[in-house]
């Protein structure tokens, strides 16, 4: 705030405004967000082409390794995604109180559900302006929990189960996720569900990017810049 000149401050005071800013997302959390985003994009792209491979490569088999490279990128990004998710869970324990918001829904709080509804009304154009939130708004929190926490866990376990097929029974991946294969009806079904999971993430990306940009423009607080700087700023000082 030091960059604001005395003149400007005077002007703001005159208008009765106060610049408020809260440090919400700490550096490790922001780093996780962007690495995770990169991993998800990599995984969706390579995953798509594993299921529906590119046109046949010309030449000798020994001169090509396209599927091999695509699968290598997929597995590498997947393992980084897993490590990132574990790191994120750790940060939920040691980070500030916003860090655990992703994992814990205030499921039994009536007020929270009321605010979820209010947020839905805001998206249905039935409410003139949304409430202000330092962390996630309740609807966003709900979506994040289902898409990112449950979605990631689903993709991690089905993905590791498929990975364990190559490493064979008794491997670390098999010990962690091998049980998923018979539970979901065998290898072919797990492949299909894992691919369905990819589409769920594609849908999430569309919604997430749109909503983040829209909120940044139309809500009363910063969104996009907050995930870069970590600082949440508000556009007005009115309560609620």
């Amino acid at each position: 705030m030091t960059s604001i000149s005395e003149e400007e401050l005077a002007e703001l005071r005159e208008r009765g405004k106060r610049l408020s800013a809260v440090y919400v997302y700490e550096a490790p959390l922001r780093a996780w967000h962007w690495l995770n985003a990169l991993a998800i994009v990599c995984l969706c792209l390579t995953g798509y082409f594993i299921g529906q491979p590119l046109p046949t490569m010309p030449g000798e088999a020994s001169a090509n390794f396209l599927m091999g490279y695509i699968r290598f990128v997929h597995f590498t990004a997947a393992l980084l995604f897993v490590v990132g998710f574990i790191g994120r869970m750790y940060w939920a324990l040691v980070g500030n109180h916003h860090a655990s918001q992703l994992f814990i829904l205030p499921f039994w709080k009536g007020v929270w559900w009321v605010e979820v509804w209010e947020e839905i009304r805001w998206y249905l154009f039935l409410k003139r302006e949304p409430r202000k939130y330092v962390g996630h708004n309740p609807l966003a929190q709900l979506a994040m929990f289902f898409f990112i926490v449950l979605g990631s866990l689903f993709m991690i376990f089905t993905g590791l189960a498929l990975y364990s097929e190559g490493l064979m029974q008794g491997s670390w991946a098999d010990k962690i996720a091998g049980w998923v294969l018979p539970m979901l009806g065998g290898s072919a079904d797990v492949h299909a569900y894992h691919r369905l999971g990819m589409w769920i993430f594609v849908v999430f990306i569309i919604i997430h990017v749109y909503v983040a940009i829209r909120e940044d423009i139309m809500s009363r607080q910063s969104i996009v810049s907050t995930m870069i700087s970590g600082v949440r700023t508000f556009k007005d000082d009115r309560a609620e």
Partner: peptide
């Protein structure tokens, strides 16, 4: 399998 890894498929 080498044709799979190479990305060479019967269409």
């Amino acid at each position: 399998r080498p044709h799979f890894d190479a990305g060479q498929f019967v269409e």
